[in-house]
Amino acid sequence: MNKEFKVLARPYMVWLSVLVFVPILAMILISISNLNSSVSVGELMISFSHFKLLLESSTLIAFRNSLVFATLTTLLSFVLGYFIAYEIKLSKFKNKFILLTIVILPMWSNLILRTESLANIMSENNILKSILGFNLFGNISGTGVAVLFGLVFTYMPFMILSVYTALEKIDFALEEAALDLGLSPIKKFWKVVFPLSLKGVVTGSIMVFLPTLAGFAIPKILSRGRIVFIGTIIENKFVYTNYNHGALLAVVILFFILGSILLLTKFDKEGETLL
């Protein structure tokens, strides 16, 4: 490509540098200072008094909830999502595009609305009960199971897509060779197919883990406010304009994300195969 076009990247470099770094620096500054809407820049003081928040039991419980649910969601969507991705790859159906569309079609309708209607049918009296005559979900409204169900089926499509992309790239000749050399189908899967699809699994896991860890809308709606995630606390701090505390918690989440990005770059050297 013509070197002259380098100029075209310049505005984007400025844009990215400003919008990636300035907000994060502002967030870090606000989390370790007394800066808020009533303090002017002249009276700015560095203080670590907000850090007490991190040791409060409600914060610790929220962190535990976020981590536990994010881990469980990732595991479940890995198991179910890998299975579906593998079945799509194996299927004799010619048009794989349609099969993938079936998986991602639900993602095109509004997430909040989908979650709300899920919460509706999980409660004791619901519209499905009035049609079917029995309660499809039992009465799990407000429980962890309800939250987990919502999270898994919201984020699983990401897992399916990235695992499928990885599986598609595997040369079928390799699988044939493995069978010819006497591996059983199960062994072939574990020794050949699975290791080759690991990159897709890592990408998919991160795409499920991070939004679950930092989410607040789905747990709030499905648990009817009973299960508090770290995102729920940040949202509360935002609503009550306590930006210092909100910023501090967001910084903590940022550290989790940095860790995940480092993990991803280990598997994905060029950083260009995210899609």
Partner: peptide, 27 residues
């Protein structure tokens, strides 16, 4: 490669961190 890594930040970063920090900058 470096700039593509930076390009991935808004995609990988959690929505809540992106949203909250942008809000602080606009504030």
């Amino acid at each position: 490669v470096i700039w593509m890594l930076l390009n991935n930040v808004p995609i990988l970063n959690a929505d809540i961190v992106t949203g909250f920090s942008l809000m602080l900058m606009f504030r």
